[in-house]
Amino acid sequence: MNLKPLGDRVVIKKVEVEEKTKSGIVLPSTAKEQPQMAEVVAVGDEIANDEKKKDQIKVNDKVIFSKYAGTEIKVDGVEYTILKLNDILAVVEE
């Protein structure tokens, strides 16, 4: 199933990062804060058709987003978040 966001919305998939303490203990994702980094899965038509916005963000970009932004959904067993473009704070460039 494909997700197609409407308007100026973006669908993201959170990036899970395994974290270790200094002593080497691996922290499971349930024991730490939710990640604020994600990968863009889809962008709405309002973004894709806007000359200024389409260069700001595109599919497969890694982004940092506001902590409590968006609506979380589960599709085919995969968790996604749908949020507005304004809730994305930065694009991570490697």
Rank of each mutant, 00 (worst) to 15 (best):
K52F: 04
E46A: 15
D76Y: 01
D76W: 00
K20E: 11
V11R: 03
D45R: 12
F65S: 02
V26S: 09
K62Q: 12
V10D: 02
N49I: 06
V17G: 04
L83Y: 00
I88S: 06
K4P: 03
I82R: 01
Q56D: 14
M37N: 11
L85T: 05
V59G: 04
P5H: 04
D50R: 04
A69C: 04
V40I: 14
K22Q: 15
G44P: 02
T30Q: 13
T30L: 14
L6A: 10
I88G: 01
N2E: 15
T71V: 14
E46Q: 13
I47A: 00
N49K: 13
V11N: 03
K58A: 11
A69V: 07
S29D: 01
T71K: 14
K54Y: 07
V63Q: 01
V17Q: 12
N60Y: 10
L27N: 08
I64T: 06
Q56H: 13
E39S: 00
D61V: 00
K22P: 15
T81A: 05
G44Y: 01
Q34N: 15
P35G: 13
E18G: 09
V40P: 06
L27E: 10
A42E: 09
K62T: 14
D50T: 00
G70F: 00
E79L: 09
D87G: 07
K4A: 03
D55G: 13
S23L: 04
I47Y: 03
M37A: 13
E39Y: 07
V59T: 10
D45E: 14
T81W: 02
D50K: 05
Y80V: 06
E51Y: 08
V41D: 01
E94G: 10
V15H: 07
D8T: 03
V91M: 06
A69H: 08
K20D: 06
V40S: 09
G24N: 08
D61K: 04
V15L: 13
Y80S: 00
E46R: 10
I64S: 00
L6Y: 00
D8H: 06
P35Y: 07
I57T: 08
I64D: 00
L27Q: 13
G24H: 03
E19V: 12
K62G: 02
L89F: 08
G77R: 01
E16D: 11
I64E: 06
E79N: 13
S23N: 08
E19Q: 12
G7E: 02
K22Y: 15
A38C: 12
G70R: 01
K32C: 00
E72L: 07
D45Y: 04
T71S: 12
E51A: 14
D55K: 15
K32R: 13
D45C: 03
L3H: 05
V59Y: 00
V40T: 10
Y68T: 14
T21R: 05
K13T: 03
